[in-house]
Amino acid sequence: MSAALPSLEADGVTQVALSELLALRARVGRMTLPTQVSRASRAGQQSSRLYGRGMDYAESRVYQRGDDVRRLDWRLTARSGKLHTKLFQEEREGRLLILLDTHASMRFGTRTRFKSVQAARAAAWAAWAAVKGAERVGLMGFGTRDELLAPRAGARGALAVCGALAAWGNRSADADEEPLSAALQRAMRTVHGASRVLLITDGACCDETARRALVELSRRARLGVLAVVDPLEVAPTPEGDYPVEHGGVRAQLHIHGERQRHWLPGMLGAGHARLAALCRATGVACRTVGTTGDPFDAVAALLGARSGR
Rank of each mutant, 00 (worst) to 15 (best):
residue 62 V to I: 14
residue 294 D to F: 03
residue 78 A to W: 11
residue 147 E to N: 10
residue 104 A to I: 04
residue 88 F to I: 10
residue 4 A to V: 11
residue 143 G to A: 08
residue 307 S to V: 13
residue 188 M to F: 03
residue 303 L to G: 10
residue 201 T to C: 13
residue 259 R to K: 10
residue 272 H to C: 05
residue 220 R to T: 09
residue 55 M to K: 12
residue 291 T to I: 02
residue 159 L to G: 08
residue 239 E to P: 04
residue 131 V to Q: 01
residue 257 G to H: 06
residue 295 P to D: 02
residue 38 S to Y: 00
residue 16 V to E: 00
residue 168 W to G: 01
residue 296 F to E: 11
residue 168 W to Q: 01
residue 136 R to T: 05
residue 245 E to S: 14
residue 50 L to H: 14
residue 25 R to S: 13
residue 69 V to R: 11
residue 260 Q to G: 02
residue 295 P to E: 01
residue 201 T to P: 11
residue 82 K to P: 03
residue 306 R to G: 14
residue 251 A to N: 07
residue 71 R to Y: 10
residue 141 G to C: 06
residue 112 T to V: 12
residue 11 D to G: 09
residue 216 E to Y: 10
residue 13 V to F: 01
residue 236 P to L: 01
residue 22 L to H: 05
residue 186 R to Q: 15
residue 221 A to L: 07
residue 71 R to Q: 14
residue 254 H to Q: 14
residue 246 H to E: 11
residue 279 C to H: 07
residue 125 W to V: 00
residue 189 R to Y: 00
residue 248 G to P: 10
residue 237 T to I: 06
residue 306 R to T: 15
residue 163 G to D: 02
residue 122 A to M: 06
residue 29 G to R: 15
residue 148 L to N: 04
residue 118 Q to R: 15
residue 283 G to K: 12
residue 21 L to Y: 08
residue 251 A to G: 05
residue 207 D to R: 13
residue 185 Q to S: 12
residue 299 V to Y: 05
